[in-house]
Design a protein around this nucleic acid. Structure first.
Length: 582
RNA sequence: GGGGGCGUGGUGUAGCCAGGUUAACACACCGGCCUGUCACGCCGGAGAUCGCGGGUUCAAAUCCCGUCGCUCCCGCCA
């Protein structure tokens, strides 16, 4: 039907008689002469229809998004008519015949231009939205990243193994999507939140190196970076320690960046401890495209003539270079951010040429000022923001400001990619709601060897062999080395308040498997959609998913979820109980 | 579950704060003219019960209440 893609034609094709197919991108009817821009997946090419050819009459009937087939000769454009804006701009097709393969209704929005259209309209007509250049670019990038992932991991000896979508509910974690069983009245499968337990069993099964582009399902509220179903690059390896996994992932990411984007990222990635990340950036997923670090000035601040400082649990300081002259409004807006993040308040100190200014100025002796400068590296012209509070709260609040300043000042430049590892997460945290310790990562994460002795005495100080990969402030991957010995697993379960019977009931199949020779193992899972999102320069994963759901988890094109026939419900033994009308 | 933003011809917006013209503009659409355009141009035309429901008022796109949809955030997401 076609001999060439529209978008591939170049001067080298001149003189060839070609057949191209695609959608009418735009039509310019000059009366005697009709120009069509014809678009396919690979790009746009100009078609000229002159009155001497049959194509001319057909071209007058044609409208945007008509599907057509054009046969004609590729010719070099006269020099003054070259269009440098498109890749095919040096040539055009002199149409002989133009065949309408299918007409189109007038589309609800213009496919040809990239103007913003309300997202609900885009989603309702997703097939039109996906025709647009930006979405085609995103789909192509996503494909390339998936392909490169498979190529790389295959070469590294990984097997892609599929795991079931209909599995057993295992409590803890996100809310499950339920699937009723027709054959077993009253029983349910659930859709996997991730293949976590299955990939660990594959290690017991001697697969040694597993990966999967795995679809995961979580019935939780949505966000710009969260959909109810999403894709992970799921990886698990046997006979490895932490650095083996990190090194593999670094090489994988290096390969992806080169193959899909032509970008060389420096390896290895910087590593931050969880503690340092919280202290220096106020978050466990810092955007390292820019500096702007937070300093702990608790000791220095004790010398201030200010009870607030002397008695504070911690005093933390964010230095914003060359911001001493920031407007009052701007500073106030930063303060608001910090207060919303839990800071009791923010004190600022502007290092003006004629001396320090701000509410702190009068409480500072010269000596104190010098030690503040030393602690923060501050120079004249800088603005220092102080928060006195519990350390985590102070840093988190300043971290919000840091993020805002990074965005406002364009420090987070698009097209730059800063990867970093965050390591040494705590194994456990205290959950007030549940009144017990919960696993920060998951219950099978191994503690750091030298901390194992602290498990019972100081559980909150035990670090985990867990790691997150952060890209431009987005958590794109997370994983851990797993516990593979029964007695250690039992100690961790005990800390989590999971008794032997409970453990048996919830994870019995895994624990049983572990009794038959589980190798040391560990792995990682990428949030593939998030990775593609950041690399595509998009702000939401909806823009890198072909058919995403709205914030209320609705598919506007298909109209899902929907009611189903009574007969279908009966078959799966479901009686619907709707919430009472208000 | 809670908080914020948005909702006006097909699309994107203005008008709303301060109620009162025939609801304006751009693009798209329809018709006409046009042989080198490429966001073609020029001339003409059609197209909106201002998300929905209620209230206040002589009068509501505009004010008030409720509701629905989209969206961002908090909670939630081991």
């Amino acid at each position: 039907m076609r001999t060439h893609w529209c978008g591939e034609l170049r001067p080298a094709h001149a003189g060839q008689r070609v057949a191209v197919c695609g959608w009418v991108h735009r039509r310019r009817d000059l009366g005697g002469l009709v120009f069509l821009d014809l678009r396919d997946r690979e790009g746009v090419v100009q078609v000229v229809c002159t009155p001497q050819q049959p194509a001319h009459a057909a071209a007058q009937q044609v409208r945007p998004e008509y599907v057509v087939r054009v046969v004609g000769e590729v010719v070099i454009r006269p020099p003054h008519t070259v269009n440098p804006k498109i890749a095919t701009g040096e040539v055009e097709i002199r149409a002989e015949t133009l065949e309408v393969l299918n007409p189109s209704r007038t589309p609800p929005f213009e496919v040809a231009d990239g103007d913003d259209v309300d997202e609900s309209v885009r989603l309702r007509y997703r097939y039109l939205d996906l025709r647009r250049e930006r979405m085609q670019r995103n789909l192509r990038l996503r494909h390339r990243l998936a392909k490169a992932t498979r190529d790389f991991l295959d070469r590294e000896g990984f097997w892609e193994v599929e795991t079931p979508h209909l599995i057993r509910a295992t409590p803890e974690g996100a809310r499950d999507f339920l699937v009723p069983s027709r054959l077993h009245p009253g029983k349910f499968y659930v859709l996997p939140q991730s293949p976590q337990l299955l990939k660990q069993i594959l290690m017991v099964a001697g697969v040694e190196r597993y990966f999967q582009l795995a679809r995961c399902f979580r019935d939780e509220d949505l966000r710009a970076d969260r959909q109810p179903e999403f894709t992970q690059i799921d990886v698990e390896m046997s006979f490895v320690d932490r650095d083996d996994v990190l090194s593999l992932v670094e090489r994988l990411v290096g390969y992806l960046m080169r193959e899909a984007l032509g970008v060389d990222v420096p390896l290895p990635f910087p590593r931050l401890s969880y503690r340092d990340a919280l202290l220096r950036y106020g978050t466990d997923k810092p955007d390292l495209r820019y500096g702007l670090t937070i300093d702990d000035v608790t000791e220095v601040a004790k010398a201030a003539e200010l009870r607030l400082f002397r008695e504070a649990e911690a005093v933390r300081c964010l230095r914003i270079p060359q911001a001493a002259s920031a407007s009052r409004r701007e500073v106030e807006q930063w303060v608001t951010l910090a207060v919303e993040a839990g800071a009791p308040g923010v004190l600022h100190l502007a290092l003006q040429p004629d001396g320090p200014k701000g509410p702190l100025a009068k409480h500072l002796t010269d000596g104190l000022l010098d030690s503040m400068r030393a602690a923060t590296g501050a120079r004249e012209g800088d603005l220092l923001l102080f928060v006195a509070a519990a350390g985590d709260v102070a840093s988190a609040a300043l971290g919000k400001i840091r993020q805002q300043v990074g965005a406002q000042r364009g420090l987070a430049r698009e097209g730059t990619f800063a990867y970093a590892w965050v390591v040494d997460f705590p194994l456990l945290e205290w959950d007030d709601q549940e009144g017990r310790y919960v696993a920060v990562h998951h219950p099978f994460t191994a503690p750091v060897d030298e901390d194992v002795d602290l498990l019972e005495s100081q559980p909150l100080r035990v670090r985990a062999k867990a790691y997150d990969l952060v890209l431009n402030g987005v958590e794109v991957a997370g994983g851990s080395i797993r516990i593979h010995r029964r007695e250690l697993q039992e100690r961790v379960f005990r800390l989590l308040g999971i008794g032997p019977e409970q453990a048996q009931e919830r994870f019995g199949f895994l624990l049983e498997a572990f009794q038959y020779g589980a190798p040391p193992h560990g792995g990682i899972a990428f949030g593939f959609d998030r990775l593609v999102m950041v690399l595509a320069g998009e702000d939401t994963i909806r823009d890198v998913i072909a058919f995403p759901k709205t914030a209320s988890a609705v598919d506007l094109m298909m109209g899902a979820p929907s009611e189903v026939d009574e007969a279908q419900l009966r078959e799966v033994h479901i009686a619907v109980r709707k919430p009472a009308a208000p």
